[in-house]
């Protein structure tokens, strides 16, 4: 057993919501959360469930409605902005444009809470900047202008800036929002690696359920009704909280695969005989076309998959029709539809 980690963030009876103005409204709570070093935490939840509000509250950008937050053992309320900036750094989904900054100087801004009156950097600052670039794999474009980066590169650079800020906690608000799929995967992989290598706690809000289930140590799932479920991904799936939070008429959470699926009106049941990859992908194709695939043999309507030296062959047996053979999945699908 590992020794007990110290909590970097702890909340107690935290109520989050809009500031106590005219329309004071509580979005979620009470929340009792704990963040430890080395954890990758994914904050999930449908739109409007309060993900951004929670992150803004935890980072001190928004006042607490009621309850307590402590950062590294110190009540957040008593900390001034520069002190918070040494404990907690932030990456946003918005792109920084028109700044005329090059990548090195952008990362260097992470040293802002440590540098003197005029922001002059010392040797330690410069070492931190280089280390942050190395950790995030951005050393290759330190000289480039920030405006010339792709969205994926830009997010990595913003992350490098947060690392240079040298805080035990890094918070990312929907960092994958504008990225393509490979960039999203890479970013999540990078965040995972960072928690292991640096011992930082990383909290990210995201809509990428699949990625969150695969990579996070802890999931905070906001259910849109004011509640937050905290636990390891697998436990939450077993508890059935994903279905409750996300299920709507149009989509359906499949607890077997951890994927969201689009429920279809079934045309007909069909049985499929075969194995390996051809079986899996034939089943997917049939399901997409609205067939319910059963495991047992249905003598009236079934498909036999045979893999041989000449490729894959599909034989369709339907009651009252002669057997049909196909050498191509598309032909099979076209014939069935």
């Amino acid at each position: 057993m590992k020794e007990l980690k110290t909590a970097l963030i702890e909340t107690e009876g935290l109520m989050i919501g809009y500031p106590a103005s005219k329309a004071s409204r509580v979005v979620a709570g009470p929340l009792d959360l704990t963040v430890c070093g080395g954890q990758l935490i994914c904050l999930l939840g449908p739109n409007g469930s309060g993900k951004s509000t929670l992150l803004r509250t935890l980072t001190g950008l928004q006042p607490v409605s009621s309850g307590k937050i402590s950062l590294d053992g110190i009540p957040l309320k008593t900390l001034k902005a520069p002190a918070i900036a040494r404990k907690l750094s932030l990456v946003l989904s918005e792109k920084v444009t028109g700044s005329n900054l090059d990548v090195y100087n952008l990362i260097a801004l992470g040293r802002y809470p440590y540098s003197g009156w005029f922001g002059k950097l010392n040797a330690e600052d410069r070492a931190m900047i280089i280390r942050a670039a190395e950790l995030t794999d951005t050393t290759g474009f330190l000289d480039r202008q920030v405006d010339s980066l792709s969205d994926g590169e830009c997010q990595k650079v913003m992350l490098a800036r947060a690392i240079a800020q040298d805080t035990p906690v890094v918070v990312l608000d929907e960092p994958t929002a504008h990225l393509d799929l490979p960039s999203r995967l890479k970013l999540m992989q990078l965040l995972y690696k960072l928690t292991r290598e640096t011992g930082k706690a990383i909290i990210i809000s995201t809509h990428e359920l699949d990625l969150a289930l695969q990579t996070s140590d802890l999931i905070w799932l906001m259910d849109g009704r004011g509640g937050l479920h905290s636990g390891i991904p697998e436990q939450l799936v077993l508890d059935g909280v994903f279905e409750k939070a996300f299920n709507r008429e149009e989509i359906h959470f499949d607890p077997y695969t951890g994927h969201f699926t689009i429920p279809r009106v079934l045309k007909q049941q069909i049985s499929l005989i075969g194995d390996g990859l051809p079986f899996i992908w034939t089943r997917k194709a049939l399901e997409r076309c609205g067939y319910g695939v059963t495991d047992g043999l249905n003598p009236e309507f079934h498909i036999l998959i045979e893999s041989g030296n000449n490729g894959i062959r599909w034989t369709v047996t339907a009651y009252g029709h002669p057997d049909q053979c196909f050498n191509d999945l598309q032909q099979l699908v076209d014939a069935l539809v």
């Binding site: 918070i84 907690l88 932030l90 802002y112 005029f118």
Partner: peptide, 19 residues
């Protein structure tokens, strides 16, 4: 001048840097 540097990133980032 130091605040101006931080503001290059926009208000929210500047705030997160302690400005």
């Amino acid at each position: 001048s130091k605040s101006l540097d931080a503001l290059l990133l926009g208000d929210r980032y500047a705030m997160s840097l302690g400005l």
